[in-house]
């Protein structure tokens, strides 16, 4: 059991399997969510998967260095910036249209329901 865990366990392929799955789940959410905030959540999932991937490659392919870890740190910072801007946009969107349903955001918005009075 221990050998199995060790041999097929925390090797590079196992890590990549997990991060790829996480990223793919993020893509699924990205394409299926109608709520803009839901899309943002899925996006966080993707970003996080990528950040972990960086750390994995760092630890497994270049031990003794921290380049991947620094990249993961940057990803966290970018994610923070993205959430701030996204939040501002969606709050504004919500206050103007009373909805954050992206399927209703086609056209110039003048013909959609719930527009500004």
């Amino acid at each position: 059991m221990a050998e199995l865990l060790h041999a097929g366990g925390s090797g590079l392929h196992a890590w990549l399997l997990v991060t790829s799955a996480l990223f793919s789940l993020g893509i699924y959410g990205l394409l299926t969510r109608r709520n803009a905030v839901g899309i943002l959540l899925s996006l966080e999932l993707c970003l996080n998967a990528a950040a972990v991937q960086f750390a994995v490659f760092n630890a497994l392919r270049a031990p003794g260095r921290v380049d991947g870890a620094v990249m993961a740190l940057f990803v966290v910072a970018v994610a923070a910036a993205e959430v701030v801007v996204g939040m501002a946009l969606f709050v504004l969107l919500y206050s103007q249209r009373r909805t954050v349903d992206v399927t209703e955001l086609t056209g110039d918005g003048r013909d959609s329901a719930g527009g500004p009075p």
Binding site: L30, L31, V102, T106, G107
Partner: peptide
């Protein structure tokens, strides 16, 4: 050209 951002994202992916 649906105007749906997600459709474009699907194409991009």
């Amino acid at each position: 050209q649906t105007g749906q951002a997600q459709a474009y994202a699907a194409w991009a992916l």
